[in-house]
Design a protein around this nucleic acid. Structure first.
Lengths: 342, 342
DNA sequence: TTGAAAGCGCTAACAC
DNA sequence: GTGTTAGCGCTTTCAA
């Protein structure tokens, strides 16, 4: 079956418990606890050495389930994201895992696959598993408290730019980020700038649309065409084709995700257009993929790592238990070549 | 603090336990267990209804920690991958999560960041958390049993193409996959085909190198240049530049990962070369990114989903406890345009 | 068909 | 500084 252990002491059948260690070291189980946890009582150095030795020799490893039961905390958090294969979310998940690990917490990952019912089910499932909290990148743009309250577990919303009363949430300034990108495009002299808008579940008004609008209005430009399409490569590809076929073809496109922009790029290349000469492009997210597309994408970078850390901190760090806050991070325009810059 | 519950019955302070349900329903705690678990004893329909009702009204949710303690199983598995932001691994992680969820298991995700010590630490940490098993995409190419034995938890190696005695492992046929790709390049008439080889920890001889060699030898071609470089976009970019600067510049490159190919593509584009006319390219992995690069990459697709399912099955499915097997999946050449096909 | 109760491994009063 | 022990919530044997 599985490789056999080679531990010096064969130990009793089954896993080694704190009781075995106590017996081996000739102390009480309490002392073993004190040593393992570094408290709450102090232990004489000689005794501690004996216990440590016993732990080593028996290969003792505390049982986390028992500890969780006793303490009422599993030192684990849950994460619910739409799709871990999406580069933005996988980056977020990595950052959350890292931040949680730094606090000694493990991360249970779940994908909701863009499905509201599954999202809710995952949150409940996580709650039943005694996680100490859940970070949700909700598919819903307006999670009513009702959606998670019955889970009775602390929830913080990540990648959530609208305020959600009663919840801790962290998001990015979509409006300002989008505005910066579109203004940059305008700076290149474009006057017909299209929007490839990702389709959200719910009727929430996405800040990126607002930012695009603001930039256009600020420059006295007319609204360009809007194509609503999923936040995916395929969605972008379809949007690109539609935009190229439009009567009044735009000269620049702002896409609400890098993935969409990558799809648009493909449609543009297939049509034999040169980017940025024939069509300029800017997008949103700042994923690694945007840096290696051809041409490299000018994109608004979300501070994924900082956002993940903030969410973890609000949930189990120094921010735990504080009154709900809505944290908004600024997004940074990364200028590369797809916009027309050299 | 957190949104208040609105449950009909305020319940006693603190979470609702099985005892509360029993009292509310006027039965014993055992009966509640029977109802919740659907066994091991049968319960009279009327009683069951009462219990179900009590569960609903009190919002009872079983405590997984207590259950895990009693049963010795947390219905949780661990996953150790090098980097969840790498598209290949994030896809793998998604598939593992899904397969585990189908079996009622949750997934604890950890990143080793290509660090052997961290990988080992993660496995141990997971074991201490009473996971029922761990799936490891090892950084080490030859994990001696010694590396995981002390964890005393079932381990299956995923994305591991060499046989590892004593371990269940699942991998892809690197040799055949690479050979197919290189032979395809040869079919396009190329005679100087370079290899951009990913750098592995350990001195394991990667099957992709072998496959490249075999294809070349089979066609009576000389070995092209080899550049050893990390399995990343940056690594590929550097490799591309080096290959372009080489005295005997190759006319085609086989890259051991899509990410590397994407980096090479960038180097090629920057040098003003046309792909596939001036330089053909093929790679390995079959990630979504390869489909949307420009030109789209001809790549050897790993059946990530099937591999993840096989690993989960070996760990906690019908394959659990069987004698260790080494499962090798075939990889499929996906022909697109980077090789020279129309 | 139902109930009583032991005990999973651990923590932390509390007693010495 | 160390030991004793109750009890976290659950499952399940055994008895009724």
């Amino acid at each position: 079956m599985y490789p056999m252990t080679t531990s010096a002491v064969p130990g009793p059948r089954g896993p080694v418990t704190r009781k075995d260690v106590a017996r081996f070291a000739g102390v009480s189980t309490a002392v073993v606890s004190y040593v393992v946890n570094g408290g709450p009582k102090r232990v004489a150095p000689a005794t501690e050495a004996k216990v440590q030795d016993a732990i080593r020799r028996l290969g003792y490893r505390p049982n986390a389930a028992a500890r969780a039961l006793k303490l009422g905390s599993s030192e684990t958090i849950g994460l619910v994201i739409p799709d871990n294969s999406n580069p933005f979310f996988s980056l977020l998940a990595h950052a959350v895992e890292e931040a949680a690990a730094d606090l000694g917490y493990a991360l249970v990952l779940t994908n909701s696959d863009g499905n509201v019912a599954k999202e809710r089910r995952n949150v409940r499932n996580l709650a039943a598993r005694q996680v100490d909290g859940v970070i949700v990148s909700s598919v819903l743009m307006e999670p009513g408290a009702a959606d998670f309250e019955s889970a009775e577990v602390p929830v913080v919303l990540l990648n959530h730019s609208a305020e959600a009363p009663g919840f801790n949430s962290v998001g990015v300034d979509l409006v300002a980020g989008a505005r910066a990108a579109v203004e940059h495009l305008i700076g290149h002299g474009h006057t017909r700038i299209a929007l490839a808008m990702g389709t959200n579940t719910g009727n929430y008004y996405d800040g990126r649309e607002e930012g695009w609008l603001q930039a256009l209005a600020g420059a006295g430009l007319p609204e360009g065409p809007i194509v609503r399409t999923p936040f995916t490569r395929e969605g972008g590809y379809a949007a690109g084709k539609r935009l190229l076929a439009a009567a009044e073809r735009p000269t620049a496109i702002f896409a609400t995700s890098d993935l969409q922009a990558v799809g648009i790029l493909r449609a543009l290349h297939e049509a034999g257009l040169s980017v940025p000469k024939d069509m300029a492009l800017a997008s949103f997210d700042g994923s690694a993929e945007a840096e290696y597309s051809w041409p490299p994408l000018t994109t608004v970078k979300q501070p994924a790592k900082a956002m993940a850390e903030a969410a973890v901190n609000a949930l189990i760090g120094t921010g735990r238990g504080n009154t709900p806050e809505h944290l908004i991070f600024p997004a940074d325009l990364q200028v590369r070549q797809s916009c027309g810059c050299p």
